Amino acid sequence: MSEDSFLREIEEELRSDKLKAFWRRFAPFIIGGAVLIVLLVAANEVWKWWRSSTAAEASDRYYAAVQMLDGGDVDGALSAFADLENNGPQGYAILSRFQQAAALKEQGQFEQAIAAYDALAASLDQPRLRELAYVMSAYIAVDHFDAAAVEARVGSMTGEENALRNNAREALGLAYYKAGNIENARARFEEIAADPMAAQDMQLRAYVYLEQLASTGVAVSNDIVEEVAPQDDAESFEIDLDALGTPMSPVVE
């Protein structure tokens, strides 16, 4: 055996001994780390499956409650929504609370519906959902509370940066009109009519409101009315003046 071959064998033996020593020292940590990775992956898969399964079940329960409500079984629907609120995922729990408040409104329990929307808004940390709950409350409050109550709910939402600004403006305009504050009502309706981002049906309602105000002698900006007015059959948009006191359903932009 040559000297080089002998030296290589010695080096291989030394490397083998070092590897064995390294493995004896660190094997528990290596194996433990591998097992931990496997467990984490398995736990993540189980969590995704559970979340998907839970969401699917909650979705079925939610739409079953909606069908009960549509079918006239209000008490059964309210019970189902309440159960989902207490035992369902957060998203469906919030939707259920919106539905419960809407059902109270449909039953003519207006003050209870307003209280339900207000409580929902106060409990939400998502700004847009909180604002939507206040808008819904404000629309009902137009007919049942004073203008100050509507202002308290949506008065801070009329700025250009707010996605629900035109819903807030409409509720405020109707509340001001009902209170006899015609100038403030006109100003809110003109803001809607002049907003290029307002939904078309919202702008058409603003046009109707302004036309009705103009018919009573209130000075209305002609530029805004001419820009928003339907070109063909404006007659079809005439409404009774009393309808200005009726809150519309909100249009989420």
Rank of each mutant, 00 (worst) to 15 (best):
L7Y: 10
I224E: 12
D118F: 04
L95S: 03
L104I: 05
D125F: 14
Q109C: 04
F98T: 02
F6K: 06
K18E: 12
W50E: 13
R128C: 06
R51D: 10
A116W: 00
G173P: 01
A93F: 11
A122R: 12
Y207E: 04
E211W: 03
A194W: 08
A122I: 08
A65P: 03
A64K: 13
F6M: 09
W23N: 03
G91V: 05
E12G: 06
E191W: 08
D195F: 07
L40Q: 11
D83N: 14
A219V: 14
D75L: 05
P247S: 12
R97Y: 00
I192S: 08
L95W: 02
D146C: 06
W23G: 08
D232R: 14
I30N: 12
L174R: 04
D125R: 10
A147C: 07
K18N: 09
S221F: 04
A101S: 05
R15D: 04
L14M: 07
A27D: 00
A163S: 15
V74H: 10
G71Y: 01
H144Y: 15
F81L: 10
N44R: 10
R25Y: 00
N184V: 02
A193G: 15
V35D: 03
A148G: 02
Y209I: 08
Y134E: 10
A101N: 04
L7V: 10
Y176E: 08
K178S: 14
K18W: 01
P89V: 15
H144T: 12
Q112G: 13
Y177L: 10
W23A: 08
N167I: 09
R205Y: 15
S5V: 14
I31V: 15
F110S: 01
L174P: 01
A122M: 09
E253W: 08
K105T: 11
R61S: 11
V154M: 04
S53G: 06
V252Y: 13
Q231Y: 07
A34Y: 07
Q107L: 09
P127T: 08
A168P: 05
Q90G: 11
Q112M: 13
L132W: 06
D242L: 06
K105Q: 15
E106Y: 02
A77W: 01
V46F: 02
A116R: 01
V41M: 13
N181I: 05
G173A: 01
I94D: 07
A234S: 06
G180M: 04
N87D: 14
E161N: 09
Y139V: 09
E170K: 04
N167M: 07
D242Q: 13
Y139F: 03
M248Q: 14
W47Y: 15
R205E: 13
A171D: 06
S52C: 02
A171L: 03
F22W: 02
E9F: 03
L104C: 05
F189P: 05
D201N: 12
A101L: 06
V135N: 02
P196Y: 13
L172F: 05
L19S: 14
S53L: 00
P28C: 14
D60A: 15
L104E: 07
F98K: 01
F145W: 13
D17H: 06
W49F: 15
S137L: 03
D83P: 10
L78K: 03
G159P: 03
K105E: 14
D201H: 07
G32H: 03
L124D: 05
S137E: 04
E106H: 02
R186D: 01
N44Q: 11
I94E: 09
E238C: 02
